[in-house]
Design a protein around this nucleic acid. Structure first.
Lengths: 206, 206
DNA sequence: TAGATACCGGACAACACTGTCCGGTATCTA
DNA sequence: TAGATACCGGACAGTGTTGTCCGGTATCTA
């Protein structure tokens, strides 16, 4: 269950041995289109129900069969990583942009958590897995690069350590549990205030 | 499924119409003993795996059949409420004891959360249900009675509202997610420090 | 001591989700 | 136009959990 998973298909025994290797014969609806539809559907389902949502619901929302879902993403974690990789990359890129400080980074992370229950699961490692932990660590790493500046500018209280920063993120995100969509932004904003940490939460879908 | 649940049993049609009403005929092991065993088992299972743990595991650990479990606690929530009612009562009683302040109350709540994943579920309303929300509200009410004193004594930052207090509890408890038993106390302690709220966490199983 | 009672506990059916398999079909090549 | 290819999507088996049912048994009454 946990291991490798090949795609047997009937072509396992090639009729013509040395045929064109990478000559894809696009199916009727194009594999890429299906993959995109699955990712979009998963983003919505994971966003509202968390990363533990039934995969059958993802396939249904995407309008594809379960076979196609499992062909593109053999395990749940494959789909989760694919969905949230983009948002992690956004955080990393923002961290490297000039003139960006910790308040902007924390704001983006908060935005993602406010918008998606699945992102909350990710940060809280609700689904402990090597690759998911990797995503969380990348976020942590990005935040860490801006901590010294934030300490110097007073955006965080004196004596705040990198571990404290991660704990603070975990606390704010954890404080969103069970909170309806309408109140999430205000709750997160107040949570950061209670911690005395400055954030700048962006408006748009980020 | 969600509604009432009678116990059909074959005695549904009473052989002797107007028999002694409340004359229990104790079974071999006594119903009360089984109930206590189930509660103890549920406390352990919910404590380590949360309130969503399989009820079959509870029955197995209690050494009773599933039939007995569902006879005593027809729905999961019945068992959850019975398990945590005791701890909520402890908080309420502590709140009414003379000379007890908010730090002691928050400490007891934190102790329960540190010791039991299920209590974390309860506070975070991981299982939204009328009766469970009721337990959470009783905790909130108990804390609220001591907030004015705490504000006056500086145990909480100036301007802390009752809502802030609940958010803070939610944050601290949320910060425990995915944290192993060994680090839970230190994490919670540090979380309260970051919030600038004074707590006195008791040592014993409370 | 003999009969009746009520509880005990495991077996069992129902249900939901996961992951695999296979017939069907649109596209590409010749 | 005809054949081959590779992808599509639903059906299906496997697994785990929930909640119900029923035979077995110890205790109480007469």
């Amino acid at each position: 269950m946990t291991g490798v998973l090949r795609d047997p298909r009937r072509g396992d025994v090639p009729r013509v041995p040395a045929r064109r290797e990478g000559a894809p014969n696009l199916g009727p609806r194009a594999a890429a289109g299906n993959r995109a539809a699955l990712l979009a559907a998963a983003r919505e389902v994971f966003g509202s129900d968390g990363t533990g949502a039934p995969l059958s619901a993802v396939a249904k929302r995407a309008g594809v069969g379960q076979g196609s879902l499992y062909r593109h993403f053999p395990e749940r974690v494959d789909l989760v990583v694919a969905v949230f990789e983009e948002q992690v990359v956004a955080v990393e890129e923002l961290a490297q942009a000039p003139g960006v400080g910790l308040p902007e980074l924390l704001g983006l992370v908060t935005r993602h958590a406010v918008d998606s229950v699945g992102f909350v699961d990710l940060v809280r490692s609700g689904v402990p897995d090597g690759r998911l932990s990797g995503l969380a660590e990348r976020v942590a790493g990005a935040l860490g690069t801006r901590l010294p500046d934030a300490t110097a500018s007073g955006a965080v209280p004196p004596g705040t350590t990198p571990d404290d920063l991660l704990l603070a993120v975990s606390m704010v995100v954890g404080g969103l549990s069970g909170v309806g969509a309408a109140d999430r932004t205000s709750r997160a904003t107040r949570a950061w205030e209670l911690l005395g940490i400055e954030v700048r939460i962006p408006d748009a879908p980020a």
